[in-house]
Computed example of a mutant assay.
Amino acid sequence: MPIRTNRGRTAVYRRLWGWPLRSPRHLVGTLVILAVVLTAVGIMLPKAIEKPGQTAGRPGSSATSTSRPGVAAPVTVTSTLPPRLTTQPPPSSARPDQDGVRVAKEWVTAWANHPDGITAEQWLSGLKPYTTEEFLSGELTTVNPANIPATKIIGEPQVSSSVVGSMDVDVQTDGPKVRVTVVKTNPGWRVTKFTQAS
C-alpha cells in the first residue's frame, strides 16, 4: 500500500495558484472572471438580504395585503405631510431708501475719480467710507485704477431692484453704466458689489 504524502496535494495547489501568473493572457482572463463574479455578488446580495416587508416602503412599489377569515388584516399607515420647501421664497420688494441711493452715487463718483498718478491705496481710501470691509479688502484690491473706463457720472442713479435691507442701483458714467449693490449695515448703507449694467 503506497504512503500518502502532502507533496501531491501541494503540487496541485501550486498549479492552481500559479496558473494566473504563467502568462499575461492568463492574468487578464483571471481578472475578468473575478470582476464578473464580484459584480454578480454585488447585484444578488442586496436582493437576498432584503426582507419581504421592506418593498412596501419603496417608491413605485404597491402595498398589497391578503387577509384570511378570522385573521386581522395588516394596517397600512400613510403620511399626508406637505412636501418640504427646498427654495427660499423671494424677498418682498420695498421702497428705495434715498440714503442707499446717495451712497451708491458717491461710491461711483469715488470709483470714477482716478486722475493720472493716483496710487491704488489713494483710490481705495476714497472708496473706503462707502464700501464694506470684505469688498474693499477683497476684490477691489485687485483693481488697477488706470484701467477704469470712466471719469465722471453723467446721469442720476436709477434703482433697478429694492428689497428690505438691500438694493441694486444703476449709475450712468461717461463710460459704462455701473450697477452697484448696496446693503444696510450697522454703520449705514455700504457697497458690497458692482458690475457693468446692461
Rank of each mutant, 00 (worst) to 15 (best):
S23Y: 03
T141K: 12
Q158N: 06
R9Y: 12
V183E: 02
V182H: 05
E139D: 13
G8I: 04
V108T: 03
V182I: 02
L140N: 03
L38V: 09
M44N: 11
G42Q: 10
A150I: 00
T10Y: 12
W19N: 14
S61K: 08
P187N: 10
F194Q: 00
G70L: 03
S125I: 04
A104V: 02
W107G: 01
G138N: 07
V143W: 00
G8R: 10
V12S: 09
L81D: 15
V169R: 03
D99R: 08
V101I: 12
W19M: 13
A35D: 07
P157Q: 05
P90V: 06
L81N: 15
S198I: 01
L127V: 06
R58W: 09
G8Y: 07
V12R: 15
Q196G: 09
L38W: 09
V103N: 02
A150S: 13
S93R: 04
W123I: 00
E106L: 08
D97Q: 06
A110Q: 06
A146P: 01
L38Y: 07
W111C: 02
T141R: 06
D116A: 15
Q158W: 00
S65R: 08
A35C: 07
A11L: 09
T142F: 09
F135V: 05
A197L: 03
P83R: 00
Q98D: 13
R9D: 10
V32A: 10
S61A: 15
R102D: 11
K184A: 01
I3L: 15
A94L: 06
G126Y: 05
N186L: 11
Q54G: 13
S166D: 01
V191N: 00
P96D: 05
T55Y: 08
E133V: 05
R7H: 10
L85F: 04
R7S: 13
L45V: 05
R25G: 10
L27K: 02
S65F: 08
T109G: 13
A94I: 02
T76F: 15
D99A: 10
T192N: 01
A146S: 13
D174F: 08
I118R: 07
T80N: 12
Q98M: 09
G188K: 06
V183C: 07
I154E: 07
K177G: 02
R9S: 11
M44K: 05
V32T: 08
S79C: 11
S61C: 10
K152T: 09
E139K: 00
M167S: 02
A146V: 11
L27V: 03
T119H: 06
P69Q: 11
P90T: 03
W17A: 06
G29H: 12
V108D: 02
H26C: 09
K152S: 10
Q98P: 01
R102I: 05
P46D: 07
E121P: 04
D99W: 05
F135S: 02
T141M: 12
P69V: 09
E134F: 04
G100E: 01
W17H: 10
V101W: 01
